[in-house]
């Protein structure tokens, strides 16, 4: 899986922000909300079928999180730390290469 582009931010926030409370609840480190992993909100998860993918980038473009990155061959990679399971990718995929399946834990 491709590495999260936020990795450096997460480490910086965890190191520098910690328990610091600024007056007015000002957040001085950009991108610091990535420390809150929101994947736990998910009910349905996208299941990807690489054989059907035509690499049109629709899922990558429309993911609101964004929790879809591209690998070296430009295939989508799903980041389940942040994917909330909204299903937009599956709905928009023109070749039905993404299917939403109920997640069982």
């Amino acid at each position: 899986m491709a590495e999260s582009p936020f990795k450096a931010d997460i480490e910086k926030v965890q190191k520098e922000y910690g328990e610091k409370m600024t007056p007015g609840a000002i957040v001085y480190i950009p991108g610091s909300s990535v420390v809150n992993k929101t994947g736990g909100w998910r009910v349905f998860m996208p299941k990807f079928d690489k054989d059907k993918c035509i690499r049109c980038f629709m899922c990558y473009t429309l993911c609101p999180e964004p929790a879809i990155y591209l690998d070296e061959e430009s295939y989508p990679v799903f980041d389940y730390d942040y994917c909330k399971g909204c299903g937009i990718c599956a709905n928009e995929c023109p070749t039905k290469a993404i299917e939403m399946v109920r997640e069982t834990k």
């Binding site: 409370m21 007015g24 609840a25 000002i26 957040v27 001085y28 480190i29 950009p30």
Partner: peptide, 14 residues
């Protein structure tokens, strides 16, 4: 030079 956000979420912990 020092970007920041205002209007952050304050959880019950903060």
């Amino acid at each position: 030079d020092n970007p920041f956000s205002i209007g952050a979420l304050g959880t019950p912990a903060d």
